[in-house]
Computed example of a mutant assay.
Amino acid sequence: MTARAAVELLRPGVDSPPESRLRLLIHNAGLPEPEVNQWIAGPDGRAISRPDLQYRRLRIALEYEGEHHLLDPAQWHRDIERDDRLRQVGWVVLRFTKKHLRQENAPATVEKIRRTLLDRGWRPGQSV
Rank of each mutant, 00 (worst) to 15 (best):
A3L: 14
R4M: 07
R4T: 11
A6F: 13
E8P: 10
L9H: 04
L10F: 00
P12Y: 04
V14E: 06
D15P: 08
S16C: 05
S16E: 04
E19Q: 05
S20N: 11
S20D: 04
L22V: 04
L22P: 09
R23Y: 03
R23M: 03
L24A: 00
L31E: 01
P34I: 06
P34D: 00
V36E: 07
N37V: 04
N37A: 15
I40D: 08
A41T: 07
G42N: 00
G42T: 00
G42W: 08
P43M: 15
P43H: 15
D44Y: 01
G45Y: 09
R46M: 12
R46V: 12
S49L: 03
R50K: 02
R50F: 02
L53P: 08
L53Y: 05
R56T: 14
I60V: 10
L62G: 08
Y64S: 02
H68F: 11
L70G: 14
L70W: 10
D72A: 11
R78A: 14
R78P: 02
D79N: 11
D79L: 00
I80W: 12
E81A: 11
E81M: 13
D84I: 15
R85A: 09
L86G: 07
R87N: 13
R87A: 13
R87Y: 01
Q88A: 08
Q88Y: 02
V89L: 07
V89N: 00
V92I: 15
V93F: 09
